[in-house]
Nucleic acid binder design. Structure first.
Lengths: 202, 202
DNA sequence: GTCTATAGCCAGATAGAC
DNA sequence: GTCTATCTGGCTATAGAC
């Protein structure tokens, strides 16, 4: 909105629709309505549905990678980063509730789209995190672990419960507020499980 | 195949197509081709695309819930169950590679489908697992934890890395074999992290 | 750059012969 | 029950006026 040019305006509308409906479920007409402009404009600026979709996918990746980067690569202690990840992620989810699911879904669906990622440069800067983990190991503060594994643990424990919420609710026969309560408790759970795992007791 | 009636035959074909392409991406023609029959037959047996899809979704849930149940509710020790979960899940994935992603995706997409689940009776039998966890706590073998949380930890650590494989590969700039190597290492990682978390050291 | 109108296609669904 | 042929609607995309 605001002072965006029409092109960005369209992209914002496309994000909303594509992230909720996916590539196949989305309709150009709905995107046009969302943007408050005509359907023909979408083609004028982005040529085809596919190109518009790829712009959205690419931007989604560019949006989430730095976000994770920010948590992983600030100057705080390793344990502090683990602790910060959960509230940061929940905060991100509030702004972009459909984005993680969207990315995972569409990258799984059409392996061509992975090429879209590789043409970009907004990868995670994993180096710094890796060095931090290795340093902590050498100093004898944590037990040996690959930084990649710790990272995947952190993502798994934080992201999956939101991703699979309807499925887990089905499994455990929970209603919305019961599940929300579990998620609340997890904030502490996740931190403790990871720190407990890597920390060397004195 | 084999001696299935036409109805089951169609359902098998529909599973393959729907699980790979999703509700919106799937084409009735493709399902008919996969089943080796005519498109009109699909409507003769299942009336509409939506009904056929719901049959597939419902069956997917009925397929995975007992599978998890089987691991969670056999007679082995709690630690043993945690250990068994990973190889069981990987084995399941080999038979139904698209199923977890399919369920999560479609349940997130259209909240109407959650009703399909509630009309079924193949929920997870969580009672037994819950009692086992509570017993271990009372006997002082593990530290206090909600069975639900332990269950979600277990699912998260096992399921997410496969679900988000393309995304994580993008983040960490890994190729297929590097990622496969990480997954191999995780088999042990996941078991250790959970048992280490709950086990009370003597 | 922005619109209206429409081309052209393709998908789900059905009619009706066998 | 199974097929072919076809209807009908909706979708992407474009032509062309302004």
């Amino acid at each position: 909105m605001k002072d965006e040019g029409t092109e960005d305006h369209i992209l914002s509308a496309a994000e909303k629709v594509f992230q909720r409906k996916g590539m196949d479920g989305a309709r150009m007409q709905e995107i046009a309505n969302e943007a408050g402009i005509n359907k023909a404009m979408l083609h004028y600026y982005y040529r085809s549905k596919r190109f518009l979709f790829e712009a959205v996918l690419s931007k989604a990746f560019s949006l989430i990678a730095p976000e994770i980067n920010r948590v992983i690569n600030d100057d705080t202690h390793l344990f502090q980063k683990i602790e910060n990840f959960t509230p940061s992620y929940i905060n991100f989810l509030q702004k972009h509730p459909y984005l993680p699911n969207f990315l995972i879904q569409e990258l799984n669906r059409d392996s061509d789209f992975i090429g879209v990622l590789h043409s970009k440069k907004d990868f995670l800067d994993f180096q710094k995190f890796q060095e931090q983990v290795d340093r902590e190991i050498q100093e004898g503060n944590i037990r040996p672990i690959k930084a990649e594994q710790l990272f995947i643990h952190l993502l798994s424990l934080n992201v999956f419960p939101f991703l699979a919420a309807p499925l887990i609710k089905g499994f455990l026969q929970l209603n919305g507020s019961e599940y929300k309560q579990l998620m609340e408790e997890r904030k502490e759970e996740v931190t403790r499980i990871l720190i407990n795992y890597i920390k060397i007791k004195e």
